[in-house]
């Protein structure tokens, strides 16, 4: 029995920039099941980032519905959306988006601060998460003392802080040098592990085909519409 964790119906997103209206998404229908490992591809301006923002509850659709775990996001208040971002979704950004002047450990603790988890538990969990991404010995380092790959691993640890079901990664390896392929591989190993072993639903936005091919399903966008939706491999979804 599979569960539609994300269901999008006739979704339209229009950006009104003064007089000009830009239709970033034109009536999208999409279903992602719990435990899927999906990549969203498309050139810039194809609407993939807009979709990411809506999936991550940072933005609301202009028309249509987005059901997250069966609940229409539209009906949620701002504070409820904050709670959804905090508890259900883990963000990984292209530019890491760690808070400078704050140690790796404190960065990982941050979602737990907003989740009102007490300091001792926060600290312990953050250390455990850093251990999972092999950075326990970098806990007290500031972001600018870490390499790109290390920073992204801190960001992944942070995304996992409140044990969200969905991981949204926007070009997670986009800011890593292509020479540091070891670091890129490290990151993908983590995502794969999260999907295969932890049962997380992982959605990665990328514009590189070879990166997308790590995942099980590739959805390609063009001009605000879904162009193709290919399943590379089917796997047994492990319920968690």
């Amino acid at each position: 029995m599979t569960e539609d964790i994300i269901k999008i119906e006739n979704m339209v997103k229009v950006y009104a920039n003064g007089e000009i209206q830009v239709k970033a998404l034109k009536s999208i229908n999409l279903t992602i099941q719990k435990g899927e490992f999906v990549s969203i591809m498309g050139s810039s301006g194809s609407g993939k980032s807009t979709l990411m923002n809506i999936l991550g509850c940072l933005d609301r659709p202009t028309e249509g519905h987005y059901y997250l775990e069966g609940i229409d996001v539209r009906e949620k208040s701002d504070n409820e959306l904050s709670a959804v971002r905090n508890k259900k979704i883990g963000f990984v950004f292209q530019s890491f988006n760690l808070i400078s002047r704050t140690s790796a450990l404190k960065n990982v603790e941050l979602p737990m601060v907003y989740g009102r988890i007490d300091a001792d538990e926060r600290h312990e969990r953050a250390l455990e998460l850093l251990r999972r991404v092999n950075l326990e010995n970098r806990a007290d380092h500031m972001p600018n003392e870490l390499s790109g790959g290390q920073r992204q691993r801190v960001a992944i640890a942070r995304a996992l802080a409140n044990q969200p079901q969905i991981i949204l990664a926007d070009e997670p390896t986009g800011n890593l040098d292509s020479e540091s392929s070891v670091e890129i591989m490290d990151i993908f190993t983590i995502f794969t592990k999260l999907n295969r072993e932890n049962g997380n639903t992982v959605i990665i936005v990328t514009h590189e085909r070879d990166i997308a091919e790590f995942t099980d399903r590739i959805i390609t966008f063009r001009d605000g519409q879904i162009l193709t939706d290919e399943r590379l491999r089917t796997k047994e979804v492990i319920p968690c």
Partner: peptide
């Protein structure tokens, strides 16, 4: 500004 964006994406409420 960017820090505020990060905090919000991680679940900070407006009141936080």
């Amino acid at each position: 500004t960017r820090e505020i964006g990060i905090r919000k994406s991680l679940g900070a409420r407006t009141s936080d």
